[in-house]
């Protein structure tokens, strides 16, 4: 009986993770795409300096960061993927979302900028679970220098 309850609990967590996780992800992607369109006019580039023909009026450091967690179902799927190897699709979408969100927040923090140069993106895993090798959540930090032309 006790095992049955445990199994039921596990299945419940999986279901919850699957439904909420996919709804969350769809919603997040929708909002990312909408905001990316809005900030299309502010290019974020990884050039180390300003292109030579541009005269700079002001410059400022801009930062954007986010912490995103993977859901229970995907974490379970990742364990299964580990047996057969290959692409870990659940984690790919997690990292993609986090990076795009961080870059968007960087742009949002300085909406009047015309160009952001020297953009760096850094990822740190904030491991929560004690199981070795599994990542609970990741932090992505994006930073660059926002430029306004003369």
């Amino acid at each position: 009986m006790e095992e049955l309850i445990q199994l039921g609990f596990f299945a419940g967590l999986l279901m919850l993770g699957y439904f909420w996780g996919s709804v969350n992800e769809r919603r997040h992607y929708h909002s990312i795409r909408r905001r990316e369109k809005k900030y299309q006019s502010v290019p974020a580039v990884s050039f180390k300096s300003v292109p030579a023909n541009i005269e700079v009026k002001t410059s400022k450091l801009v930062i954007g960061s986010t912490v995103i967690s993977i859901d229970y179902f995907k974490r379970f799927m990742a364990v299964l993927y580990n047996l057969v190897g290959g692409r870990l699709k659940p984690y790919e979408s997690l990292l993609d979302r986090a990076r795009r969100e961080a870059i968007l927040r960087m742009k949002q923090s300085s909406p009047k900028a015309q160009l952001i140069i020297n953009v760096r993106v850094e990822t740190a895993s904030i491991s929560k679970s004690s199981r070795k090798g599994t990542v609970g959540s990741i932090e992505v930090l994006a930073y660059g220098t926002a430029i306004n032309y003369k």
Binding site: G17, W20, G21, H28, T66, V67, D71, G136, S137, E139
Partner: peptide, 11 residues
Amino acid sequence: NIIGGELTGYS
């Protein structure tokens, strides 16, 4: 961690 998404507190 069960349902996924942004951890606002940590952010």
